[in-house]
Amino acid sequence: MATLDLALEEEVVAALPARRKRRLGPVFWAAIAWMVFIFVAAIFADVLPLPSPTDMDMLNRRAPFSALHWLGTDGLGRDELARLVYGARISLIVGLGAPVIGVTIGGALGMLAGYFRGRFETLVVGSMDVLLAFPPLILALAVTAYLGQSILNLTCILGMLGIPAFMRVARAATLTLARREFVIAAQALGASHARILLRELLPNVMLPLLAFFLLGVAVIIVAEGALSFLGLGVPPPIASWGSMIGEGRESLDVAPQLAFLPAIAMFLTVLSFNLVGDTLRALTDPRQGAL
């Protein structure tokens, strides 16, 4: 008796395009536009026709917007726009660098812990708990005091502090997935642990990690801003949005834009990363595609 299912009808083919277009509204694209703008500005800062961010023009301090200085000058006569652009660079370097450290080390540890379980897992989770117990600000202070303030040190310490969070996300995702039948199927085929981790688990764990990564970028940008505001971040005269806000504090009555402009820039950047991260997560959730 003929029982074989015939070839898939066209309805499966046609069903595909409709679902992708759902969430990419104007807000999403605005966020993407801002992110692109910031990235381009930061990468090409050197070749843009900007005045130097460190040249002080003491006769022209806290100047209003003008043709020479599009966004005016700060308390030491340095061009505000140039400082904003170079500040973007710092924010992005630290903002991307630190979570990259977090996601690679934390993600790897989390996946291994969630897959192998047992004593290894206990060790990893335990050490992460210890790391989390350190007050982060004190740790950052101690490191910078001991090793000196620099972009590299800052990125490393912030990255390290982010490892436990990424470990948790990766481990949670791996725990759920490792018990599902497709992983057991791979084991039944005789796949090695490495193969299972890389080809079966990683593509699935990557999504929540990626979404968390983008949120992490947002958090680190703010963290770097806070540290620089306190004078513990990147050392002067390197421009950073956080230190600019700190310096702008003194001029709030005379030239409020010195504090607000970097704050707005930070706000927009953090918001964009959050929006894109959220949308990406919702979009790539495979269950959404089922209906």
């Binding site: 008796m1 003929a2 029982t3 074989l4 299912d5 015939l6 309805e11 069903a15």
Partner: peptide
């Protein structure tokens, strides 16, 4: 004994 199966699948309710 081969079972008298119903071939095909239920229709897509959106079409």
């Amino acid at each position: 004994t081969p079972l008298p199966a119903i071939s095909g699948r239920p229709p897509d309710p959106t079409r």
